[in-house]
C-alpha cells in the first residue's frame, strides 16, 4: 500500500467509512499479526492484540500525520501494544531475563557436530523453532517476525545486548541443524 492510498484510507476512517479500515486490514493484517506474535509468542494473545490494534487505529485515526511513513507508524503501534500486553500479563517471562546474570550464561562449546557439516534434518520451521528454548524463541520471534533491532530487544527484555546477540547466534546455529539459514 502506498502512502497516498493509506492516507486516503485514513480520510475515509475519519468520515466514518469502515471500508477505509477494511483496506488497511487487508493489506496489513499479516504484518501486524506477525509483529504482535513475535513479541507475545501466543496465538490467542496475538489475535486479541491484533484486533485491538485495528480498533485503536479507527479510534485514533486523527492522530496520524499524513506522509510520515505509515508502515513504520503501524509497526510501532503494534509493537508497543504487544509489549504493554506482555508486561501486563506475562511479567514473569520478562523477569526471567532481568534476573539472569552474565554468570548464568554458559557458552556451550560448538562441537564439530554443530557445524554446517552436520546432517541436516528436514523438518518444518515450526517444529524447528520449537526445538529452541523459550528465551531463544522469544529473541528469534522479536528479531525475525517483529523486525526489531537487538537494541530494542535488549531494552524490552531488560537484558544486556551482548546476551541477546549471543542467544540469537546460538539459536541460529541450532536452526541450521534443521536446514534453515539466516539471510544476512
Amino acid at each position: 500500500m502506498t502512502e497516498a492510498t493509506f492516507d486516503a484510507c485514513i480520510q475515509a476512517i475519519l468520515k466514518g467509512d469502515k471500508q477505509g479500515l477494511r483496506d488497511i486490514y487487508d493489506a496489513y493484517l499479516d504484518y501486524i499479526y506477525r509483529i504482535v506474535y513475535g513479541v507475545v509468542g501466543s496465538r490467542e494473545d496475538a489475535e486479541d492484540i491484533t484486533s485491538e490494534f485495528f480498533i485503536k487505529l479507527w479510534q485514533q485515526a486523527d492522530r496520524y500525520k499524513a506522509g510520515s511513513g505509515h508502515k513504520a507508524y503501524l509497526a510501532t503501534i503494534a509493537r508497543n501494544m504487544a509489549i504493554d500486553h506482555t508486561r501486563k500479563y506475562k511479567k514473569e517471562v520478562l523477569e526471567s531475563f532481568t534476573q539472569e546474570s552474565d554468570d548464568d550464561v554458559v557458552i556451550e562449546p560448538v562441537s564439530s557436530d554443530n557445524t554446517e557439516a552436520e546432517v541436516i534434518e528436514d523438518i518444518a520451521i515450526k517444529e524447528a523453532i520449537g526445538k529452541l528454548n523459550p528465551k531463544e524463541q522469544q529473541i528469534i520471534n522479536m528479531k525475525i517476525l517483529s523486525e526489531m533491532t537487538f537494541q530494542e530487544i535488549s531494552d524490552i527484555l531488560k537484558c544486556p545486548m551482548g546476551t541477546v546477540t549471543w542467544r540469537y547466534r546460538e539459536a541460529i546455529k541450532k536452526l541450521r541443524r534443521y536446514g534453515y539459514y539466516e539471510e544476512s
Binding site: 499479526y33 506477525r34 489475535e47 518444518a124 520451521i125 539471510e183
Partner: peptide, 21 residues
C-alpha cells in the same frame, strides 16, 4: 537450505485468522 526468515514468516501468515468480524 531453507531461508529461515521467509519460511518462518510464511508459516505465521498461514496461521493468521480472519479477525474482521
Amino acid at each position: 537450505m531453507k531461508n529461515l526468515e521467509k519460511e518462518y514468516k510464511d508459516q505465521i501468515d498461514r496461521e493468521v485468522p480472519d479477525l474482521w468480524s
